[in-house]
Design a protein around this nucleic acid. Sequence first.
DNA 1: ACCTGAACACCGTTCAAGT
DNA 2: ACCTGAACACCGTTCAAGT
Lengths: 214, 214
Amino acid sequence: MPHRLNERRIAETALGLVDAEGVDGLSMRKLAAALDVSPMSLYTYYPDREAVLEALTQLVLAEVDVPDEDLDWRETIRQIMRSIRRVGLRHPHVAPLINRFPPRTPDALAFVEAGFRAFRRAGFDDVSTARCYRALAVYSMGTFDVELSGYFDQHPGGHAGTDSLAAPSMERHLPNLARIGPALAGQDDGAEFEYGLELLLTGFAAAMGAGGSR
Amino acid sequence: MPHRLNERRIAETALGLVDAEGVDGLSMRKLAAALDVSPMSLYTYYPDREAVLEALTQLVLAEVDVPDEDLDWRETIRQIMRSIRRVGLRHPHVAPLINRFPPRTPDALAFVEAGFRAFRRAGFDDVSTARCYRALAVYSMGTFDVELSGYFDQHPGGHAGTDSLAAPSMERHLPNLARIGPALAGQDDGAEFEYGLELLLTGFAAAMGAGGSR
DNA sequence: ACCTGAACACCGTTCAAGT
DNA sequence: ACCTGAACACCGTTCAAGT
């Protein structure tokens, strides 16, 4: 009765390691050590390290909340998108993996199905729904990219470049960048997320009204 | 007169390796071999592998075209965004790096400055310009994520899952996903990109008219 | 300063073998 | 089937040394 290894326990332990030390901090050897087994025993359950990363991503995607069924389609999408963002903020090191591995397990697909249901209830046809889903996927992934890796923190003109030696030369050659930098650095992540989200929802609604499906 | 090593030549050779073999295919040892020097000589020019990846990304960002100055602001943004997408398609293995490393060199920042100029000419204030720029950054990065890694090709309900053994059970438990899958698989990347882009531009224009800056 | 070879501390995964 | 230890073919980077 030694170790009771199984797919789920391996994925959960791997998720803990990635949350704690980042994706690069997850090695098959460290994972095995954390489970108190030999490295090669993991290969009974997963063909390679990539499969472990995919599996741990499914666990995280399953954390996305499914809204109540009686909501307006806009509010349903808002709640799903906000929950996705919260999950990303809770697992910042997993966010890049979410952008690589689509949901696959039934638990991970629950929020996708819920979103599709909302569009259908609202009268969107399948092609329009696919189009909206794609736009929302693009938006959540892009949000992870800019928000969770401090993209604008390192962006010249933002906080980083302001008081560097290069600043005078930047004002000369890139005056607009220099002027807009502070506005970029002062952005509120949550507010910008809501702004873009409403912009998408408004666009979807307009396409609907113009004859998207009826 | 041996090797004439320098920052740029290293970055260009590294870009060639990444284009050919992917990010994982770039090792300091292989890069050194391609330049016919010892691995450690690279560390005279770059502190570590990460810095080499950042440098090669700057080279790629510098490939983005800067539109003519006499264009409408919408058309300026369209042309910049399309050029970014083309650059990503030309260097698919570099796209994930573009999502991690902001433009830093003057050449890489040229298109950013051009975009800021266009917004300014159109009367956007700095805060609105920063907001639009962020939304466009989110959009281009999300586009790279979904388009260049075949996100929807592996997505259940799309091409992959259709004729698998799990299909019947999926139709039972995730009926909307099953129905919308084909529409997702049939999407035209270019058309969807244009759709989302117009949606953003329309939203920006509406915010302007409603008193964004005047 | 620029470049080197040797070494250190790791990797993922294959293999042959055990139960 | 499940798990093991040893080995292979790599890594990035430190170090001490050369010019």
